[in-house]
Simulated scan of single mutants.
Amino acid sequence: MFKKILLVSALLVSGASAHTAVMTCFDNGDGTITCEGGFSDGASGSGVAMYIKQNDKKVSEGLMNEDSEFTFAKPQGEYNVNFDAGKGHVVSIKGQDIVE
């Protein structure tokens, strides 16, 4: 019985990790940032909520487009870009980590 429970638990854990949210962002060099997002199993990020936070306050928000991209004006100062596909599927990238 213990082996069956362990096997089921392992399958549930591996199934949960097969749908991890992923995002990358880059500086376009023209005052804008573009982020691409989706899921580790290849699923599109189209329609996923995106928002930019500064000082724990949302300063911009929108949705990933049909190409799973989101472009926004680069804020001055420190900020975080967030890909929010719901509980357990949120990715946040610090502005200082986004390069051309």
Results as ranks from 00 to 15, higher is better:
M1R: 03
M1Y: 14
M1V: 13
F2S: 12
K3T: 00
K4H: 07
K4W: 13
L6S: 10
L6E: 09
L7M: 09
L7D: 07
L7V: 07
L7I: 05
L7A: 15
V8H: 12
S9P: 00
S9K: 15
L11N: 01
L11P: 04
L11E: 05
V13T: 07
S14L: 12
S14V: 15
G15A: 14
A16K: 12
S17P: 08
A18E: 11
A18C: 09
H19Y: 13
H19N: 12
H19G: 12
T20A: 12
T20D: 10
A21Q: 08
A21F: 13
V22D: 01
M23D: 05
C25M: 08
F26N: 13
F26D: 07
D30G: 03
D30I: 09
G31Q: 05
G31T: 14
T32S: 11
I33Q: 12
I33T: 08
T34E: 09
C35A: 06
C35F: 10
G38R: 02
G38Q: 04
G38S: 09
G38Y: 02
S40N: 14
S40K: 06
S40H: 14
D41L: 13
D41E: 13
D41R: 15
S44T: 07
G45A: 06
G45T: 12
G45W: 00
S46G: 02
S46V: 00
S46F: 03
G47L: 10
A49L: 15
A49K: 15
A49T: 11
M50A: 07
Y51R: 00
Y51M: 01
Y51T: 00
I52L: 10
I52Q: 00
K53S: 04
Q54A: 01
Q54Y: 01
N55Y: 13
D56V: 11
K57I: 03
K58L: 09
K58W: 00
K58D: 10
K58V: 03
V59P: 02
V59F: 09
V59M: 11
S60M: 14
S60N: 09
E61S: 14
G62P: 06
G62V: 07
L63D: 08
M64K: 03
N65P: 00
S68F: 01
E69A: 04
T71C: 02
T71G: 13
F72G: 13
F72D: 09
K74L: 02
K74H: 01
P75G: 01
Q76R: 05
Q76K: 10
Q76P: 00
Q76W: 04
G77H: 14
E78G: 01
Y79V: 03
N80Y: 02
V81G: 09
V81Q: 00
V81L: 06
N82M: 12
N82T: 15
N82I: 15
F83H: 00
F83S: 01
D84N: 08
A85W: 11
G86P: 13
G86N: 07
G86L: 07
G86E: 06
K87M: 07
K87N: 13
G88K: 00
G88R: 01
G88L: 06
H89R: 11
V90W: 07
V91W: 05
V91T: 04
V91H: 00
S92K: 07
I93W: 06
I93D: 01
K94H: 06
K94R: 05
K94L: 04
Q96L: 15
Q96Y: 13
D97H: 10
D97L: 08
I98D: 11
I98F: 04
I98R: 02
V99S: 10
V99N: 12
E100M: 04
E100Y: 06
